[in-house]
Computed example of a mutant assay.
Amino acid sequence: MYEKHLTSPSEHELVLRVIPMPADCNANGDIFGGWVMSQVDLAGSVLPARIVQGRLATVAVNEFVFKHPVRVGDILSLYAQVTKVGNTSITVQVEVFAERFGAKGGHIKVTEACLTYVAIDGDGRPRPIQQNEA
């Protein structure tokens, strides 16, 4: 694997699609950033879970950028790509695009993030990622 910063969803795999609801709003009426972060964490774990075939844990949020607010009713598409596989860890780039109501198929990148996950054993300790897993 190699590291690079990605900007096109075509280079990523669609791993999650979700619609935020009014209960997910902050005091400004936009979707709460913490809700978006939780969706990114879920989406980011999909590809590493396939690789490690077992338990994993989020160990770092290396970068998280909110580019535009997320609104109630946006259709969010979360794309991910593995950028690095180490001995026990996997780094993933996640990009979030919103399809706005009335935009007739138009999409806007609302969030991008880089997260690191670690493969863990039954006791919650880091375990090596087997060469055939990566």
Rank of each mutant, 00 (worst) to 15 (best):
G33A: 11
G73A: 09
V110E: 07
V36Q: 01
R71A: 11
S10D: 13
E133Y: 11
P128E: 15
L16F: 10
V70N: 02
G34E: 09
G124Y: 14
M21Y: 00
P9C: 09
P20W: 02
V94C: 00
V18D: 11
T7W: 00
E13H: 04
Q131G: 03
E133P: 00
R100L: 11
N28I: 00
I75Q: 01
V65Q: 12
D121T: 01
Q81R: 11
F101C: 07
A57Q: 14
L16M: 15
N87I: 09
H107P: 00
V61T: 15
I51R: 14
V82K: 04
Y2H: 14
N26C: 00
G34Y: 06
I75H: 00
D24N: 08
G73T: 06
G105T: 07
F32H: 06
C25D: 05
Y117W: 01
V85P: 03
W35C: 03
G106P: 01
V59S: 08
A134S: 13
C25I: 05
Y117F: 14
F101V: 11
V40D: 09
R127E: 14
T116L: 09
G34Q: 07
V118F: 02
A80S: 15
H12Q: 14
R71L: 12
I129F: 13
G73V: 01
A103C: 08
M21H: 02
R71F: 12
S38H: 06
L6G: 12
V72L: 02
D74E: 02
A49L: 06
A27L: 09
G54N: 07
V96C: 08
V85T: 15
G102Q: 12
L6P: 06
R127A: 12
A23R: 09
L115T: 10
A134W: 02
V72W: 01
V94R: 00
G44V: 02
T111F: 05
Q39P: 02
A103N: 10
R100I: 08
V52F: 13
A113R: 03
G105K: 10
L115M: 12
K109R: 11
T83Y: 00
V36C: 05
C25M: 13
L6R: 09
V40Y: 03
D74C: 06
G106W: 01
K67H: 15
S89W: 04
M37I: 08
A57D: 13
L6W: 11
L6E: 11
E63K: 14
Y79D: 11
L115G: 06
A80E: 09
I129E: 08
G44H: 04
I31E: 10
A134C: 07
G106S: 14
P69M: 04
A49Q: 07
Y79K: 02
